[in-house]
Amino acid sequence: MTVILETKSLNKEFGAVIAAKDLDVRIAKGEIVGVIGSNGAGKTTFINMVTGYLKPTRGEILFNGKSILGHSPRAITRAGMARSFQVAQLFPEMTVLDNLIVALAAAESPRPSFLSPLRSDKRVARAEDILREFGVENYRDSMVTAVPQGARKLVDIAMALIGNPQMLLLDEPTSGVSMDEKTGLMDTVMNAVRQHGVTVLFVEHDMDVVERYVSRVLAFYSGEIIADGQPSAVLADERVRDLVTGHRPTHKKGNGAS
């Protein structure tokens, strides 16, 4: 098993509040890991620390065996770890196509050109391919503000995948998306992820989505990991049922878990 991401005794304190306590996590290459937990359990704090948005109070973060502690988000992105956000982070006054073109240019070079046009034929063609891959080609020329939430989420994730990351962290990819759209969205994302061969860690509140798509679950509660293992085992765990899910799992047959 090749470990792609490892955290050692990761802690985050906001004054007297302990948002993350001694988090020891090892993610293997190719795994699809779900992170569950109630609000304030420390899931997003964990993602924010790993992706450089928050600096841990103590602990170590290794990506491909190298420390990324204290690295900037852009350095971590360039190292091969991308992320999406709970609220899709796009450029609202640009079209969907232009959002992708900006991401393509960023993936090509950290130093954008001063005089060459950003919108080259090659980039437009590539962006159109991505739009088709994510099933949002109908929104090609729409301003982001005019696009439904589900499509925005897909564009957000597509932008994260453009740089060919080795690992993708998704923060609640289905939040704000209707029940009907959730499966379609996750199928699209997982298909893209499989094609790119990306390791995925995603935060999710919908247990049906978790059971359906992940091979492993981390259950957070009050800044700690209280269970780690296969979805069926974690979701059946007494503490997880009491503190996180509050219900018994439905054990749907997964078609997305690797």
Binding site: S72, R74, T77, F85, A106
Partner: peptide, 13 residues
């Protein structure tokens, strides 16, 4: 101007 966070997470400064 529109979203500095996203630019940072595209790997740019």
């Amino acid at each position: 101007r529109e979203n500095e966070v996203r630019v940072e997470y595209l790997g740019l400064s």
